[in-house]
Amino acid sequence: MQKTIPGLAVRTSVKERRVARGWGQEELAAKAGMSTTTIHNLEAEKNGFTDKSLSAIAEALGCTPAELLLPIDATPPHVIRGDAQILSMLARIEGLTSKDIDVAFGVIQLALAKRGG
């Protein structure tokens, strides 16, 4: 049985993040593996969020479920540790090609190596 997560800022956070990406409810629904009606009902607080739906929406929006509990401007910065997290962060930047990501990753690695030694 799944728990329903209280609304908190989830409704507005999801909508703000969706709109910031230029997505309609249809696109978010497709990326989260849900119906458009489900996304509409969630944003309109007609239905609650479950841990599963919150996780799917967060993954589609490129954030954590915890970040959806807060207003978009109140999201705390995250510490990024390790190459996998650096690459993941770079992959979330819209418009970067694979080559751009490789170049940026190389620059970051050099900066960290210089700073550490």
Rank of each mutant, 00 (worst) to 15 (best):
S53Y: 08
S53N: 07
L54E: 00
L54M: 05
L54Q: 01
L54C: 05
S55V: 02
S55N: 08
S55K: 13
S55I: 02
A56V: 13
A56N: 10
A56P: 05
A56T: 06
I57C: 04
I57K: 08
I57H: 05
A58E: 05
A58H: 06
A58R: 01
E59L: 10
E59H: 06
E59M: 09
A60L: 03
A60G: 10
A60S: 12
A60F: 01
A60I: 06
L61W: 00
L61Y: 02
L61E: 07
G62T: 00
G62L: 04
G62E: 06
G62C: 05
G62M: 01
C63S: 07
C63Q: 06
C63T: 01
C63E: 05
T64K: 12
T64W: 04
T64D: 14
T64E: 13
P65L: 14
P65R: 09
P65S: 14
A66H: 08
A66K: 02
A66W: 01
E67T: 06
E67W: 06
E67N: 08
E67V: 08
E67H: 08
E67L: 03
E67G: 03
L68I: 07
L68M: 04
L69M: 14
L69V: 14
L70P: 00
L70V: 05
L70N: 09
L70R: 03
L70M: 05
P71I: 01
P71R: 01
P71N: 07
P71A: 10
P71D: 11
I72P: 06
I72K: 15
I72E: 08
I72L: 07
D73H: 12
A74Y: 07
A74D: 11
A74Q: 13
T75M: 15
T75S: 11
T75C: 12
T75V: 11
P76N: 08
P76W: 03
P76V: 00
P76K: 02
P77K: 12
P77C: 09
P77N: 10
P77R: 11
P77H: 13
P77L: 15
H78I: 07
H78G: 13
H78M: 12
H78A: 14
H78N: 11
V79T: 15
V79Y: 04
I80V: 13
I80T: 04
I80D: 03
R81Y: 11
R81H: 15
R81F: 09
G82C: 15
G82A: 14
G82E: 15
G82Q: 14
D83F: 11
D83P: 08
D83Q: 05
A84P: 10
A84H: 09
A84S: 13
A84L: 09
A84R: 13
A84Y: 04
Q85Y: 10
Q85V: 12
Q85E: 12
Q85M: 08
I86V: 15
I86S: 01
I86W: 01
I86Y: 03
I86E: 02
L87Y: 05
L87R: 10
L87I: 00
L87F: 12
S88V: 15
S88K: 08
S88C: 10
M89S: 14
M89R: 11
L90W: 01
A91T: 04
A91S: 12
A91P: 00
A91L: 13
A91F: 03
R92D: 09
R92W: 05
R92C: 15
R92K: 13
R92Q: 09
R92P: 02
I93N: 04
I93R: 09
I93P: 01
I93S: 09
E94T: 13
E94K: 11
E94R: 06
E94F: 02
